[in-house]
Write a protein that binds this DNA or RNA. Structure first.
Length: 549
RNA sequence: GCGGGUGUAGUUCAGUGGUAGAACGUCAGCCUUCCAAGCUGAAUGUCGUCGGUUCGACUCCGAUCACCCGCUCCA
């Protein structure tokens, strides 16, 4: 932990980073002139380009040239096709996926301790007096706990005293009066009158827990202008389902065969209970998702493949170092769809606001065939989603396999685009008291919103014209990748400083010598060092710098 | 949802019961041959919002919104 890079995030101030984001036009508060709106953020000119670049780099490395040409577990090329599906789907999609039933967790508040619990996590143990017959006893109340062990196995005097005090009116304060527990029930399953007799996990008297309240995390909307209850629809809480419900379409209309992946980027919406931490937990956010379909026997290999490659990808685009970790989920934190699979991993970044902890950037989940199965079995989908794999099965007389029908397993690498941008901003933010800007943004050239800048050293003597010429050359070659900046005004130091805060990796300066010996000055953002190269080599220099050489 | 904190120019912050300032940034001009240089000048805020107290509120009170921190929660 003594390593300098290890401690860097703790020394970076989130307030300073947010201030720079505003000041330089990366991120603004949404609806700011109306006082903002909780959980929403807008991207300014530099932020929009940065976000687009990250999305484009993902698209390039996932869809256009999957895994940068790296072969799969068996040496085969990775097969990937894109889709772009709707934010609003038939509401039955979300019934089948489990979001309508499961995406809303009933919550319980304790009016005494001010704590909040999930109603289906609260185990309620009936308290039964020893002088009652166990089998047909009426419980005198319930003791709630988040875990069986906590209450039963680690019971100590403190817990015991608390319970005895809370039930003093029923079992008496006599130390020797006994009680025992019946079989536990979930708080969510208790009747209202039973709930009034529950002793909360952190309460000292009974009946301090509220009724379970629904926290529906999906945004509701209405289809059609009449807007009745029959017209309810939802803004998608994840892009994934759009892929699953198009699985058959893609198989039927595209020359893909398992194993292959379907990729998609797009907005998703969740009514987070507590939006927090700048853009980290926004209610409107963008995902970059892959659903990779494979034979169940190969799913584990693909899970490992994608987990490791996605980690490598984030490292390659600038999140190198100790701030990025790969973390395998514990069994008890697996999502409902991953229970049957091999597991889930998170790629996590140590943000200034999570340090020394980490926040999730991307989850790689083994979803087994949960989703395809759910859609196939939904009574109203009425569609067989089994895949006919003609490379498998017994051999027929002619030597050809007879084929095997199965629901493919799915490996899902699901990344948060906005979280990626935020991590890149945090990682790039580099305080440097030695330089005029006091800080610079060390973006990887592939994602940097401004790719290069061209400056005439002074605004006269033919330098502006020469700079304009070079600027045009660079725009023509690299303008599709990001902004090429040029600016003839004010001192050169001020212009360099601006580019430092914008994270522009290369600045080229035209001076008097350019006009006589045909060389320009290159200034490197990270070292602030300068060297001269021929004017005619600048395009090639930038290409190399952007990894295109 | 609870507790704590904050809210004044683009940013960082002063400020006083008598309707606002600094620094930096931004812009313009001059000047400038390599790191926010120099000189001159300019723009910018309904002091988060609404309401109350007051002759008068940026200041006091209340509500509300937003952000930050700690819980809680987070497919």
């Amino acid at each position: 932990m003594a390593d300098a890079t290890d401690q860097q995030p703790q020394t970076k101030s989130m307030d300073d980073i947010m201030s720079l984001c505003k000041r330089r036009g990366f991120i603004y508060q949404a609806s700011e002139i109306y006082g903002g709106v909780n959980g929403f953020w807008d991207y300014g000119p530099l932020g929009a380009q940065l976000k687009k670049n990250l999305r484009d780099v993902w698209w390039q490395d996932i869809v256009m040239n999957p895994c940068q040409g790296k072969p799969g577990p068996k040496g085969e090329p990775i097969s990937m096709v894109p889709v772009d599906t709707c934010i609003i789907q038939n509401p039955k999609v979300w019934e089948a996926s489990g979001h309508v039933g499961g995406f809303n967790d009933p919550m319980v508040d304790c009016t005494e301790s001010k704590k909040r619990y999930r109603a289906d996590h609260l185990l309620c143990f009936p308290v039964i007096r020893d002088d009652e017959t166990y089998d047909n006893a009426t419980p005198i109340g319930y003791v709630a706990s988040l875990s069986r062990e906590q209450l039963l196995e680690q019971e100590n005097k403190k817990v015991w005293k608390r319970i005895r005090k809370a039930f003093a009116d029923s079992i008496g304060s006599n130390e020797h009066a006994g009680y025992s527990y019946g079989d536990e029930r979930l708080y969510s399953e208790l009747q209202p009158e039973e709930r009034a007799a529950v002793l909360g996990p952190d309460a000292s008297e009974r009946g301090t827990l509220t009724e379970p309240r629904q926290f529906n995390l999906m945004f509701k909307t209405y289809l059609g202008a009449t807007a009745t209850e029959d017209d309810i629809a939802y803004l998608r809480p994840e892009t994934a389902q759009g892929i699953f419900i198009n699985f058959k379409n893609v198989v039927d209309t595209t020359r893909v065969s398992v194993p292959f992946g379907i990729a998609q980027t797009g907005k998703a919406f969740r009514n987070e209970v507590t939006p927090r931490n700048f853009t980290f937990r926004s209610r409107e956010f963008e995902q970059m998702e892959i659903e990779f379909f494979c034979h169940p026997e190969e799913a584990n290999d693909w899970y490992v493949f994608w987990r490791d490659w996605r980690m490598q990808w984030w490292q390659e685009i600038g999140l190198a170092g100790e701030n990025l970790i790969l973390r395998e989920h514990d069994k008890d934190e697996l999502a409902h769809y991953a229970k049957e699979g091999a597991g889930t991993s998170d790629i996590e970044y140590r943000f200034p606001f999570t340090a020394p902890g980490f926040g999730e950037l991307e989850g790689i989940a083994h979803r087994s065939n949960y989703d395809l199965s759910a859609h196939q079995n939904h009574p109203e989908s009425n569609t067989k989603l089994e895949y006919l794999d003609t490379t498998r099965g017994e051999l027929a007389k002619n030597g050809q396999p007879k084929g095997e029908r199965y629901l493919p397993d799915v490996i899902e690498p699901s990344a948060g685009l906005d979280r990626g941008v935020l991590a890149i901003l945090c990682e790039a933010y580099t305080p440097d008291p030695e330089r005029p800007s006091k800080v610079f943004m060390r973006f990887h050239p592939r994602v940097a919103p401004i790719k290069a800048a061209v400056f005439p050293l002074v605004n006269k003597d033919g330098m502006p014209e020469k700079a304009a010429e070079l600027h045009q050359m660079l725009v023509k070659r690299f303008g599709h990748l990001g902004k090429i900046e040029t600016d003839p005004k004010q001192s050169i130091g001020k212009r360099y400083a601006r580019m430092d805060e914008a994270g522009c990796p290369f600045c080229f300066t035209i001076d008097g010598d350019t006009l006589t010996d045909g060389t320009v000055t290159v200034r490197d953002r990270d070292t602030a060092e300068q060297k001269r190269i021929p004017f005619d080599d600048v395009v090639e220099f930038v290409a190399t710098g952007l990894g295109l050489g």
